Amino acid sequence: MRQVAAMLKAIHAQENRTAAQERAVKVVAELCEMALAKAADLIDSKFNGTLTYYSYPPNPLV
């Protein structure tokens, strides 16, 4: 399970939404190879909703 958690973190650690979407596709493929089809289906159907923070404007105070 730690490997799956690391995969999910890798999706959200990407620099932009496009890279995160590309990483999510790779994660889905990796999960299918690991015989975790239900997890792959869940990520495939729901990950776009978790990427909405990429559309927020950058924080100028940081």
Rank of each mutant, 00 (worst) to 15 (best):
V4D: 04
A13K: 07
R2Q: 11
E22R: 11
S55T: 09
S55V: 05
H12E: 10
A19Y: 10
Y53R: 03
L61G: 02
Q21S: 06
L61V: 11
F47C: 04
G49Y: 12
Q3R: 07
K38T: 10
M34L: 07
L42R: 12
T52N: 05
A24S: 13
M1G: 15
A37K: 14
P57Y: 08
H12A: 01
Y54I: 07
L36M: 15
V28D: 02
L31H: 08
M1S: 15
A19Q: 14
V62T: 12
V62W: 04
H12R: 11
S45V: 09
I43V: 15
A37H: 13
I43S: 05
V25N: 11
D44W: 06
V27N: 03
A10T: 03
N16G: 00
F47P: 01
P58Y: 00
Q14M: 14
R17Q: 13
A20Q: 06
E30T: 11
V4E: 08
A6L: 13
S45D: 06
C32N: 15
Y54R: 05
A13W: 01
Q21H: 04
C32K: 14
H12W: 03
A13T: 05
A29R: 09
P58R: 08
A39P: 01
L42W: 09
E15K: 10
A20P: 06
P60Y: 00
L36I: 00
A5S: 08
A35E: 11
A40W: 05
C32H: 06
A19P: 02
E33N: 12
A35M: 04
M7G: 01
E30C: 03
K46Y: 09
V62Y: 05
K9H: 07
V27L: 02
V25G: 04
A24N: 10
I43N: 03
A35R: 12
L61P: 01
V62I: 15
L31M: 14
A13I: 00
Y56V: 13
A6R: 08
R17H: 04
V62K: 11
C32L: 06
L31A: 02
T52K: 14
Y53W: 14
